[in-house]
Measured scan of single mutants.
Amino acid sequence: VTTYKLVINGKTLKGETTTKAVDAETAEKAFKQYANDNGVDAVWTYDDATKTFTVTEMV
């Protein structure tokens, strides 16, 4: 189990959160659900070296 981080650069929601998951795909599903629940529709990137997902909402 690995800890993954999500950085949110949204128009109305900004911040960071983490989740523990067995792999990046599982973490991504959890983070996308979190973003969807909070109304963030954005572009996703992932950095495997830092285990960090970044979501940037387009203006």
Rank of each mutant, 00 (worst) to 15 (best):
residue 3 T to I: 13
residue 42 A to Y: 14
residue 10 G to E: 04
residue 28 E to T: 03
residue 24 A to C: 14
residue 53 F to E: 00
residue 55 V to C: 11
residue 36 N to T: 12
residue 54 T to R: 04
residue 30 A to F: 15
residue 44 W to C: 01
residue 11 K to S: 11
residue 8 I to T: 04
residue 50 T to L: 05
residue 35 A to P: 02
residue 58 M to F: 11
residue 51 K to C: 03
residue 28 E to R: 11
residue 21 A to D: 01
residue 39 G to T: 07
residue 25 E to G: 07
residue 11 K to M: 11
residue 3 T to K: 06
residue 30 A to N: 08
residue 44 W to A: 01
residue 47 D to M: 02
residue 54 T to I: 06
residue 57 E to A: 08
residue 55 V to Q: 03
residue 31 F to W: 02
residue 48 D to R: 04
residue 57 E to F: 14
residue 51 K to D: 01
residue 45 T to A: 07
residue 26 T to A: 13
residue 19 T to Q: 06
residue 40 V to F: 14
residue 44 W to N: 00
residue 50 T to R: 04
residue 12 T to V: 10
residue 10 G to R: 07
residue 54 T to G: 01
residue 12 T to Q: 08
residue 20 K to Q: 14
residue 30 A to K: 11
residue 14 K to A: 08
residue 18 T to L: 09
residue 54 T to S: 05
residue 21 A to T: 03
residue 5 K to P: 03
residue 46 Y to W: 01
residue 34 Y to G: 02
residue 15 G to Y: 15
residue 31 F to L: 04
residue 9 N to E: 07
residue 24 A to S: 07
residue 36 N to R: 14
residue 34 Y to C: 14
residue 30 A to E: 12
residue 20 K to G: 04
residue 28 E to Q: 09
residue 5 K to Q: 04
residue 55 V to F: 06
residue 4 Y to D: 02
residue 24 A to V: 13
residue 25 E to V: 10
residue 38 N to H: 14
residue 24 A to W: 14
residue 3 T to F: 05
residue 46 Y to C: 00
residue 44 W to G: 00
residue 59 V to D: 14
residue 26 T to K: 05
residue 19 T to C: 14
residue 40 V to M: 12
residue 8 I to M: 09
residue 28 E to D: 03
residue 28 E to C: 14
residue 23 D to I: 02
residue 44 W to T: 01
residue 29 K to N: 06
residue 16 E to C: 15
residue 44 W to K: 00
residue 54 T to N: 04
residue 4 Y to P: 03
residue 15 G to I: 15
residue 8 I to Y: 09
residue 59 V to C: 12
residue 25 E to R: 11
residue 23 D to W: 02
residue 46 Y to I: 01
residue 26 T to D: 07
residue 24 A to D: 03
residue 24 A to R: 14
residue 39 G to E: 06
residue 40 V to R: 06
residue 32 K to V: 05
residue 34 Y to T: 03
residue 23 D to C: 04
residue 54 T to L: 05
residue 42 A to L: 13
residue 20 K to H: 09
residue 19 T to N: 02
residue 43 V to A: 06
residue 3 T to A: 04
residue 52 T to L: 02
residue 46 Y to F: 05
residue 37 D to A: 13
residue 22 V to P: 13
residue 14 K to M: 10
residue 11 K to P: 12
residue 48 D to S: 08
residue 4 Y to I: 03
residue 25 E to W: 09
residue 37 D to K: 11
residue 57 E to N: 06
residue 26 T to N: 06
residue 54 T to M: 06
residue 56 T to K: 05
residue 18 T to A: 05
residue 13 L to Q: 08
residue 17 T to V: 15
residue 4 Y to L: 00
residue 11 K to A: 11
